[in-house]
């Protein structure tokens, strides 16, 4: 038996918004630790890794590990029926269940909506993402600022080069209409920690990425005030949004473009 109750259905809704344009389906792996989703885009260029820790739920019970194979567009339809302040409870029988139940309760407890979502068998391979990668450059910034940079620059071109040097971090883009270069610098004096920009550099780093995927990643901005972008020569970029203090995270990995 699996049963988990989250006080804010909106958190789950935001997680779905953060992944559904990039991947169409995935296994939500449920264990005592929490709920984990790992999925790659169809081109196998990027990967999203979501973790919702058990302690981030009001109630969490998972007797046996199970994978809920879900078509994300369908789950999105169900979650769109949740009210802004609704709580959500997800229930499923053990492995082999055909459906999962989603129940939304209004904050006053006077409106309860229940859906049975059809599950599917998804053959998904888990990629072994190394945990011990050391990155030569890390940029921490407000997630709204990251979203704006990507949104602005993606109108100019479809490839962006991120360069971190002692002068700051620059995002360079070129396209048919011309070129753009946006440079940000560390700003650790901002009043609120969430408004600070922190650029950490072990060594100057310059890598090129497809803008299309970075645009997908900005969909997670509503989940977190800040985003951390970690890059190193010739390894995948990591874009990480933490959910709350302890609730979990959405991490995206993106293979760089490399000049051969």
């Amino acid at each position: 038996m699996f049963e988990a109750r989250m006080a804010q259905a909106s958190t789950l809704k935001k997680v779905l918004e953060a992944v559904k344009d990039m991947v169409s389906e995935g296994n939500f792996d449920c264990s005592e630790e929490g709920i984990c989703l790992q999925a790659m885009d169809v081109a196998h260029v990027s990967l999203v890794n979501v973790l919702l820790r058990a302690q981030g739920f009001e109630m969490f019970r998972c007797d046996r590990n199970l994978a809920l194979g879900i078509q994300l567009a369908n789950l999105s339809k169900v979650l769109n029926c949740a009210g802004k302040d609704d709580a959500v409870t997800v229930k499923a029988e053990d492995e082999g269940a055909d459906t999962a139940e989603f129940m939304f309760e209004s904050s006053k407890g006077d409106r309860i909506t229940t859906f049975e979502l059809t599950l599917m068998d998804i053959d998904s391979e888990h990629l072994g993402v190394p945990e011990d990668t050391t990155y030569t450059a890390v940029i921490k910034m407000p997630s709204t600022e990251f979203r704006r940079i990507i949104s602005d620059l993606s109108t100019i071109g479809d490839t962006v080069t991120i360069e971190v040097s002692k002068d700051g971090a620059s995002f360079q883009v070129s396209g048919d209409i011309g070129k753009g270069n946006l440079c940000i610098q560390s700003n650790t004096a901002a009043d609120k920690p969430s408004e600070r920009v922190e650029i950490t550099m072990e060594e100057p780093t310059k890598q090129t990425y497809a803008m299309r995927y970075l645009s997908f990643f900005t969909k997670a901005a509503p989940l977190s005030d800040t985003v951390t972008i970690s890059l190193s020569p010739d390894v995948p970029l990591v874009v990480e949004f933490n959910i709350g203090e302890e609730v979990g995270y959405v991490k995206y990995y993106l293979a760089p473009k490399i000049t051969e």
Binding site: M40, H44, V45, S46, L47, L127, G128, V129, P130, T133, T159, T208, A210, V235, P236, Y253, L254, A255, P256, K257, I258, T259, E260
Partner: peptide
């Protein structure tokens, strides 16, 4: 022109 790499190859390499 830079060539887009496949993510699986990276993680296989690591």
């Amino acid at each position: 022109t830079p060539v887009q790499n496949d993510l699986e190859e990276f993680f296989a390499m690591c």
